[in-house]
């Protein structure tokens, strides 16, 4: 049983979630979401790795393709994951700016839905 990367991925996920639930600042909350996403990167990349240590899927000669390499598909998925992560972060930070503009407050536990001061 060797599941070290999966354990770390689960740890990052849970730590990020704990940070979101107990967050007292919206920027901190966005960063916690980033930590959760780091867990998903790790899970994806770990799923494509293989022992004995395999090479990156870059084939400079045709002979190299017969040797073992790591899975390129999970790496492509991770790229998608990172792009979506950057997009979500940018949108959330823009929303954070607007919340600060309209309420002057960035503590999610003091913000109330539909409440205008």
């Amino acid at each position: 049983m060797n599941h070290f990367p999966e354990v770390i991925a689960a740890w990052l996920f849970v730590v990020g979630l704990y940070g979101i639930v107990t967050s007292r600042h919206l920027v901190h909350l966005v960063m916690c979401l980033g930590i959760i996403q780091a867990g998903t990167y790790l899970l994806l990349i770990a799923g494509g790795y293989r022992f004995p240590p395999a090479a990156a899927p870059i084939f400079e000669t045709a002979e190299q393709t017969t040797l073992t390499s790591v899975d390129p598909i999970v790496q492509a998925l991770t790229l998608t994951d990172i792009v979506v992560g950057a997009a979500v972060t940018a949108l959330l930070l823009a929303i954070t700016i607007q919340i600060h503009k309209s309420t002057g407050n960035l503590d999610p536990q003091e913000l109330r839905l539909m409440h205008r001061p």
Binding site: E6, G47, Y49, F51, A54, T65, D71
Partner: peptide, 22 residues
């Protein structure tokens, strides 16, 4: 996740197919 293949024990054929043919 403990039911997943062990780390480094890559099972799937898809990645290998791409690696061989790309």
């Amino acid at each position: 996740w403990s039911a997943l293949p062990n780390f480094g024990n890559y099972p799937g054929p898809n990645g290998d197919i791409v690696n061989r043919s790309a």
